[in-house]
Structure formats: structure tokens, C-alpha cells
Computed example of a mutant assay.
Amino acid sequence: MKVGLYFGTFNPIHIGHLIIANHMAEYSDLDQIWMVVTPHNPHKQKNTLLDDYHRLHMVHLATEDFPKIKPSDIEFKLPQPNYTVNTLAHLQEKFPVYEFSLIMGEDNLNSLHKWKNYEHILSNHDVYVYPRVNSGEMNSEFANHPKIHRVGAPVIEISSTFIRESIKKKKNVTPMLPRKLWEYVEHNLFYRK
């Protein structure tokens, strides 16, 4: 089985994430998409994140109607801060019959050469790339790489940051979040301060 790993802090997960994940599940050769909730991205401030459990629960709420999309807390069990290469090694050991691939936006692909052991990742795993607005010029090292697959998914201009800031300003963001997720955010008064 081919599993696409879609990493993110998902703070919160929103319809843009779901559109990309569903597109990958339906229009690529990936069998399942695992939404890997990142407890702490080495490049982000931890104090801006909701508690890990709440973000994981929101991913459960958002994906329950999508049988090919699964929440994953695999990184919660790994030493922090964690790196993708370590997660991939852990998953391959735990699920040896699965073939794991990465899903990322073009903007992340352009910085892949800065990732820890990125050559090892590219030697052992496929990377599925979706388009992003203003992602910059393609890194020539990856332009024709056999392990990198561009998928013509819709271009989504919604960000979790925009949603958090909008909630703080008391704007209506209900169209950008699945209903059950919005109810959970409202009930817990998340992102108000």
C-alpha cells in the first residue's frame, strides 16, 4: 500500500488541507493519505501552537468523512524537535510492507535541500508536490528528479494563520472549516486571544 504523508501543525486544519489531501487520494497513485500532526516544527515557535491533543482531535473531526484520509500522531511518540527523516525511518520500521511518500507544496520543495538528510529521503521515498501561489523559481536540483511527482491539485490560498487571525478579529470563518471542527473551535474558544 502506498501512503502519502501530509505533515503539518494543522493549527487548525482547514478545507484547503482537506482539498489537497483528497486530491492526492483520488488523483494520484497513493492509496491513503496520513495527516501527520507535527507536535513541534523546528522552524516554528511552539508557543503559537494549540495543545497537541486538540490539534489531533481537530484532524479527527475534519477527516472522519474521508475514508482514504487518516489522522496520525506518530510524531508525538518521537523525541522533539523531530525531523522528517527520523519519522520516515520509524514508520518504515513499524510498517515494513507500506511504501511511504511525502506530500508537500512547491514552496517546501524549494527548501528541501535544507532538510536534514534530504538526499537520503529522496533516495528512498517519492515526493508528491502540489502547486502554491508565489512559490518562487524551481530549485534546478529538483526540476526533473525521478522521485518528485507534480500533481495538478487546486491552488489553495487559505492558511491556518489567516484563520487564527480572523477568529481573533471576530470574523466569520465558517466556510473555511468543516462544521464539526468549527463547533469544536467555538466551544473551546480557541484562537480568541
Score class of each variant (00 low, 15 high):
residue 130 Y to W: 10
residue 145 H to T: 11
residue 44 K to S: 03
residue 64 E to M: 03
residue 38 T to V: 10
residue 117 N to E: 09
residue 124 N to W: 06
residue 145 H to F: 00
residue 21 A to N: 09
residue 127 V to S: 14
residue 125 H to A: 06
residue 104 M to F: 05
residue 60 H to G: 12
residue 82 N to P: 12
residue 125 H to P: 04
residue 44 K to R: 06
residue 2 K to Y: 04
residue 193 K to M: 10
residue 125 H to V: 08
residue 118 Y to C: 07
residue 8 G to N: 03
residue 91 L to C: 07
residue 66 F to M: 06
residue 144 N to P: 10
residue 39 P to M: 00
residue 58 M to G: 05
residue 65 D to W: 13
residue 33 I to D: 11
residue 161 T to S: 06
residue 132 R to E: 00
residue 7 F to I: 07
residue 7 F to D: 06
residue 23 H to G: 01
residue 117 N to A: 05
residue 91 L to I: 02
residue 139 N to P: 01
residue 72 S to I: 06
residue 180 K to S: 01
residue 159 S to F: 11
residue 66 F to N: 04
residue 68 K to T: 08
residue 160 S to I: 05
residue 39 P to E: 13
residue 11 N to M: 05
residue 98 Y to I: 03
residue 121 I to S: 10
residue 64 E to L: 10
residue 5 L to D: 09
residue 106 E to D: 15
residue 148 I to L: 04
residue 168 K to P: 14
residue 107 D to R: 04
residue 4 G to C: 02
residue 78 L to Y: 14
residue 46 K to M: 05
residue 55 R to F: 04
residue 164 R to T: 05
residue 82 N to L: 10
residue 51 D to G: 13
residue 170 K to Q: 13
residue 175 P to I: 09
residue 128 Y to T: 02
residue 63 T to I: 03
residue 189 L to Q: 15
residue 3 V to L: 02
residue 154 P to R: 03
residue 77 K to Q: 14
residue 45 Q to N: 12
residue 103 I to G: 07
residue 93 E to L: 06
residue 39 P to H: 00
residue 121 I to M: 08
residue 134 N to K: 15
residue 6 Y to F: 13
residue 49 L to M: 14
residue 27 Y to I: 15
residue 64 E to Y: 12
residue 152 G to C: 12
residue 120 H to P: 15
residue 19 I to E: 12
residue 188 N to K: 04
residue 83 Y to H: 14
residue 184 Y to C: 03
residue 91 L to D: 00
residue 179 R to Q: 15
residue 40 H to W: 14
residue 161 T to W: 00
residue 55 R to L: 14
residue 106 E to N: 04
residue 36 V to M: 14
residue 78 L to G: 06
residue 158 I to C: 08
residue 83 Y to T: 10
residue 46 K to L: 09
residue 66 F to I: 02
residue 141 E to N: 09
residue 158 I to V: 08
residue 8 G to Q: 01
residue 104 M to D: 09
residue 162 F to T: 11
residue 137 E to Y: 03
residue 77 K to Y: 08
residue 26 E to K: 00
residue 108 N to G: 07
residue 138 M to A: 12
residue 150 R to K: 12
residue 29 D to I: 06
residue 87 T to E: 01
residue 8 G to W: 00
residue 150 R to G: 13
residue 30 L to Y: 07
residue 124 N to R: 04
residue 87 T to F: 00
residue 3 V to H: 07
residue 178 P to Y: 06
residue 104 M to A: 04
residue 50 L to E: 14
residue 181 L to M: 07
residue 171 K to W: 12
residue 161 T to E: 01
residue 81 P to H: 05
residue 179 R to Y: 15
residue 107 D to A: 08
residue 157 E to Q: 14
residue 12 P to E: 00
residue 156 I to H: 10
residue 157 E to R: 12
residue 50 L to V: 13
residue 169 K to N: 05
residue 23 H to M: 01
residue 169 K to D: 00
residue 164 R to M: 08
residue 113 H to L: 07
residue 3 V to Q: 10
residue 186 E to I: 12
residue 184 Y to M: 08
residue 158 I to W: 01
residue 156 I to W: 02
residue 97 V to N: 12
residue 101 S to G: 11
residue 141 E to R: 14
residue 146 P to E: 11
residue 50 L to Q: 10
residue 38 T to I: 02
residue 97 V to Q: 15
residue 98 Y to L: 08
residue 140 S to C: 03
residue 154 P to C: 01
residue 61 L to R: 00
residue 126 D to C: 15
residue 154 P to H: 01
residue 29 D to S: 08
residue 31 D to C: 06
residue 23 H to E: 11
residue 170 K to P: 13
residue 70 K to G: 14
